[in-house]
Simulated scan of single mutants.
Amino acid sequence: MPMKEERYFDLSVLVGNWESVNLHPTVIIYRNGNTYLLSLIHMNETSKQASPATYEIQEDENGYFISYNLKRLSIGYDVRLDMLKLSSLGDYMRN
């Protein structure tokens, strides 16, 4: 059965730490005033230093997204599985 992905949902359900099932950077979603921010935490394997890159979550007629590396990265959420889906980075489980 295909995953039912919600296009519109309350962003507050996404607040927290998310771990990639495909070993992509860890994601932290939090609220700052009236905006929601998504931080990707890149780990430098050599220095073991974490460097966050933070993006404002935006919304249009196609749903939620961030502008990531000059591309649109769509944000989806599976309510039943409590799973975050980022279009080019794959699935994330709550940490």
Rank of each mutant, 00 (worst) to 15 (best):
I28Y: 10
L73I: 11
Y68D: 11
I41P: 07
I57R: 01
R31S: 07
F65A: 09
G33D: 07
S51D: 01
V15F: 00
V15C: 02
Q58P: 01
T46F: 09
E61K: 10
G33Y: 05
A50V: 10
I57M: 03
N69L: 15
I28D: 13
S51A: 06
Y64Q: 03
G16M: 12
T46R: 07
Y64I: 02
L23W: 05
N62D: 09
K71D: 05
L40S: 15
V21P: 03
I57F: 02
A53S: 13
R31T: 02
L14I: 00
M43K: 15
Y36H: 12
G63D: 02
T54D: 12
K48S: 01
A50G: 03
I28N: 11
F65K: 05
N32C: 06
H42S: 11
T54F: 08
G33V: 09
P52K: 02
Y68R: 06
L23R: 15
S47I: 02
S67T: 15
L73C: 12
I41T: 06
I29K: 01
V15W: 00
N34Y: 08
D60V: 09
P52T: 06
K48E: 08
S39E: 12
S51N: 04
P25A: 12
Y30A: 05
R72T: 12
V27L: 12
N17F: 10
L23M: 08
N22V: 00
Y55H: 13
D60C: 10
Y30I: 03
I28K: 14
T54Y: 09
V27E: 08
I41R: 15
L23T: 02
S47E: 04
S47T: 01
V15T: 02
K48F: 00
I66N: 01
N62W: 07
I57T: 03
I66H: 07
L70F: 08
A50P: 03
W18V: 01
T54L: 10
W18I: 02
E45N: 15
V15M: 00
K71I: 10
V15D: 00
L70T: 10
K71T: 06
G63H: 04
N17H: 09
E56Y: 07
I66K: 08
Q49N: 05
E56K: 07
K71E: 11
Q49K: 10
L73D: 11
K71L: 09
L14Y: 00
V21A: 06
R31P: 01
I28P: 06
N62F: 05
H42F: 15
V21K: 08
G63F: 08
L23F: 12
F65G: 05
F65E: 04
I41W: 11
N17C: 07
M43D: 14
K48G: 01
V27H: 05
L40I: 13
T46M: 10
Y30G: 02
G16W: 08
L73A: 05
Y68T: 07
I28H: 12
T54K: 11
S67L: 12
V21M: 10
N17D: 15
S51G: 00
L38N: 14
K71R: 15
A50T: 02
Y68M: 06
Y55C: 06
A53E: 15
E59V: 11
S20F: 00
Y64K: 05
I41C: 13
V15G: 00
L70D: 12
I66Q: 09
N17E: 09
R72Y: 03
T35E: 13
H42G: 06
A53M: 11
Y30P: 01
P25D: 05
M43G: 12
K71P: 00
S67H: 14
E59D: 05
R31E: 05
D60H: 06
H24L: 14
